[in-house]
Amino acid sequence: MVTTKTDSNIKKAEVVDLTFGYTEKNVLNKISMPIYQNKVTALIGPSGCGKTTLLRCFNRMHDLYGEVRYNGEIKLYPDDINILARDIDPIEVRMKIGMVFQKPNPFPKSIYENISYGLKVRGVKKKSYIDDKVEDSLKKAGLWNEVSDRLHSSATSLSGGQQQRLCIARALATEPDLLLLDEPTSALDPISTAHIEELVTELKKSVTLLMVTHNLHQAARTADYTAFMYLGDLVEFGESSQIFTNPKEQKTENYITGRFG
């Protein structure tokens, strides 16, 4: 693997020699990469190369489906803890690291209840605080103007693009250190997609983002850093401008020029 040197950035997290498999077979092989604070990092690669699997390590989602073996570490800074360690409570990890799924998944509740859900789960009771947080998160997600007059109507009545921004707002309300996005626009139309891309670029002022996408243009447009994965290996990591204009690895070049995948 080739990593381009970057000094001026603060690391928010770092994957160190991460190996993971659902069964005997490894789906991730010794992945190592940094995640820089207040930057957008994109994970690209052909279908089935392990992007989702890697993303779901960050919030210990795999733990939901039985005993799993993580080899290696994901360090979270500035706490400097390995969030994959056995003695770390996955729930506490998920409290710090938010996630937006491929398909918008609002709860069948009102818009307000969706946004306040994460706060309620954390035991926040104060109504004025929750109200402010709901408004603030919806504003950050660029949804406030569209829904401010119907906060108490059902979230499932929103359009797909609005639902996805609602899901982003829902995650933002909990003030995550890191926001994971798994192909957040793959179920959306081009206009909604453009909306989400703008939003992602805007959000990095306040949060660190790690985004899976199989849309290369999206990665090139929105990501500061890009990691190219292939068959469970991290082939190349670097600044997006470098990856997309001057890849160092042949495989990366083949992929971005559309020769495979």
């Binding site: 919030n59 989602m61 939901l64 729930i91 506490e92 998920r94 409290m95 938010g98 996630m99 799924f101 398909k103 998944n105 609002p106 709860f107 069948p108 509740k109 859900y117 994460g118 309620k120 789960v121 954390r122 899901c167 829902r170 995650a171 909990t174």
Partner: peptide, 25 residues
């Protein structure tokens, strides 16, 4: 399953997920 995961990803416990998301849904 994406509703269940959505709740858990927000830091909810199994019990909270059951009573606040699964049962209402």
């Amino acid at each position: 399953v994406h509703l269940r995961e959505g709740s858990l990803a927000l830091g909810a416990s199994n019990l909270q997920t059951s009573f606040k998301v699964i049962i209402p849904s």
